[in-house]
Amino acid sequence: MSVEIAPPAPPHGYAADKDALLKRLRRAEGQVRGVARMVDEDVYCIDILTQVSAATKALETVALQLLEDHLAHCVAEASAQGGPVAQEKLAEASAAIARLVRS
């Protein structure tokens, strides 16, 4: 009896930027913890809103980088293959863009 070994899955489009993305996410995580601390310490609301805005911007930057990597890697590769795979990846990207715009 022979066992077939599946080839390794291709890396995600963000693989090359993984360290930078994780660094940005850790920074955003720290900002969110800071916001919670500010609320706990009854800091002035406008100062808290400023920090919420900074944390939101940090997460938006991560989202845009992931989207850019997805388009350049996953969508481009699927488009080269054509057919239903390409249509699926384009629909996926379109839905992701719509979610980002609505948020």
Rank of each mutant, 00 (worst) to 15 (best):
S94P: 04
V75R: 00
A28H: 06
M1K: 13
K23C: 12
T50R: 14
S79I: 00
V85Q: 07
I46A: 07
V3G: 05
L21R: 01
L66W: 03
A6Y: 03
V52A: 10
R102S: 07
A16K: 11
P10F: 08
R99K: 13
C45Q: 10
M38L: 04
C45E: 13
G13N: 05
A15P: 02
T61Y: 01
G34Q: 04
Q81A: 11
G34K: 00
T56H: 07
L67E: 04
A36D: 15
S79H: 03
L49E: 07
E4P: 09
R26W: 13
A36I: 14
D47Q: 15
A76T: 01
R24E: 10
M1T: 12
G30S: 07
A20P: 04
A91P: 05
V43H: 14
A28W: 02
I46W: 02
I48L: 07
A16I: 09
Y44H: 13
A86Y: 06
L90D: 03
K89M: 02
R26A: 09
D69W: 03
V52Y: 08
S103W: 01
T61I: 02
I46F: 01
D69G: 10
M1Y: 15
R33T: 10
E60M: 13
A54F: 12
V85N: 05
L25A: 08
P11L: 06
S94L: 10
L64M: 13
P8M: 06
A58K: 02
V75A: 01
A58V: 04
R27E: 11
R37I: 04
V62Y: 00
R37H: 06
R102E: 02
Q65G: 05
A16F: 10
V43N: 02
S79R: 05
L49T: 14
G34E: 07
K57D: 03
S2A: 15
V43Q: 10
L59I: 12
L59N: 01
A6C: 09
A9M: 15
S103N: 12
R37M: 09
D17G: 05
G13L: 05
A9C: 08
A95V: 02
A72R: 13
A63Y: 01
A76Y: 00
A80S: 08
Q31F: 06
E88R: 14
L59A: 12
C45H: 09
V39R: 01
E4M: 09
L49D: 15
A55G: 07
E29D: 12
V62H: 00
E77T: 10
T56N: 07
G83C: 14
L71K: 01
E41S: 08
V52N: 03
A86D: 01
A80V: 06
R37V: 08
P10C: 06
I48S: 02
V3W: 14
E60C: 10
P7M: 07
S53I: 06
G83K: 04
L22T: 11
E29R: 15
A76G: 03
L100I: 01
A55C: 06
E88T: 06
D19Q: 15
